[in-house]
């Protein structure tokens, strides 16, 4: 393992400290229990949005705390859900009286810990669960699909509505709409190494890729020989379009997300391939996002998310945002 690390036990705390110092104009970091919150108090009457999950997906979620997105984020240990007292403390810290909406990715540990946090918090609160990963079959009898990169889009779009004074119910409704209209699938070329483990999570050959990988290096649909980008992107988009079934010329947001170890040059190449394929299928791309937003430590690979956009979604996507990892319009 080659990482910038002092002691595995201090890894998260030291990284959070650095994050707090680097972005002290936007956020503050609290420890014991740990959460990231906005530097400025949530304005009265504004619904507070709180997300969280295991660390190792940076900038998600701490990098999305700030104007127009989250009010607080709760980081767990690397790839482990945060504990309920973090959610309770964050909610008590940010709630200005309009209630708290928890945004939770569909993983068993996150679901259970957020549920317990919500039960421990005495104020008004509700939750939405994202499950955009089309690589996994959905079913009411199982854990169902994973919540992955579309969580970033949910946080941005609902964050804007909350900033504009949307109620808890309205925020939840919009979040569920964005989640339902989004589909994601990822591919990994290499594994990632959890600092506490010190070795790669899985073995993968030089000429292989994991198709449909999750965001923790957990295996995906199948192991395949690596192919040209256009073939990989085509296969990902087939799975997403099969699931989303967009209308002819329906407007979409195309989000190419890096897993942490793939350079932007490659992500833009993927974006170009995806645009061409979508155009040939009569899908209109009207908004874009390209970069490392929902990562898996140093994993090489990328995910593609397609979001079907109506006017409400577009308006809230375009609205100003100022966070450590996403900033426009202000």
């Amino acid at each position: 393992m080659k990482k910038f690390i002092n002691k595995a036990d201090d890894f998260l705390k030291e990284s959070l400290n650095g994050f707090g110092k680097a972005h002290s104009d936007i956020i503050q970091v609290s420890l014991d229990p740990s959460f990231v919150s906005r530097k400025n108090k949530t304005k009265e009457g504004k619904v507070s949005l709180i997300s969280g999950g295991g660390s190792g997906h940076e900038p998600m979620h701490g990098g999305f705390v700030g104007h127009g997105m989250l009010d607080a984020a709760c980081p767990g240990f690397v790839f482990s859900a945060p504990a309920p007292d973090q959610m309770q403390a964050a909610a008590e810290h940010v709630d200005s009286g309009a209630g708290v909406l928890f945004i939770v990715k569909n993983y068993s540990g996150d679901i259970m810990n957020f549920q317990m946090g919500a039960e421990m918090y005495s104020g008004k609160n509700d939750s939405i669960v994202t499950n955009d990963d089309v690589a996994v079959k959905d079913s009411t009898f199982t854990t169902g699909r994973r919540g992955v990169a579309a969580t970033v889009l949910v946080e941005k779009i609902v964050g804007s509505l909350a900033e504009d004074g949307g109620s808890l119910e309205e925020c939840k409704k919009l979040g569920e709409k964005v989640n339902k209209n989004a589909g994601t699938m990822g591919v990994a070329f290499t594994s990632c190494t959890v600092p506490a483990a010190g070795k790669p999570t899985f073995d993968i050959g030089d000429d292989e890729m994991e198709f449909g990988v999750g965001i923790h290096g957990e295996p995906g649909r199948k192991r395949e020989k690596i192919q040209p980008s256009k073939t990989i992107v085509g296969n990902i988009l087939d799975a997403i379009l099969d699931n989303l079934k967009p209308e002819n010329n329906e407007k979409t947001l195309l989000f190419v997300n890096g897993m942490g170890g793939t350079p932007l040059t490659e992500l833009y190449l993927v974006y170009d391939d995806a645009c061409q394929i979508l155009q040939s299928k009569g899908v209109e791309v009207t908004r874009s996002l390209v970069g490392n937003y929902c990562t898996s430590l140093e994993m090489q690979g990328a995910s593609i998310t397609l979001l079907k956009c109506d006017e409400e979604i577009l308006k809230n996507w375009d609205a100003p945002v100022h966070t450590a990892a996403m900033r426009w319009g202000m």
Binding site: F77, A81, P84, Q86, M112, M116
Partner: peptide
């Protein structure tokens, strides 16, 4: 257990 572990194990054994 509930506050110090996290993940599914923290929630379940805490419970």
């Amino acid at each position: 257990v509930l506050s110090g572990i996290g993940g599914s194990s923290g929630a379940l054994f805490g419970t």
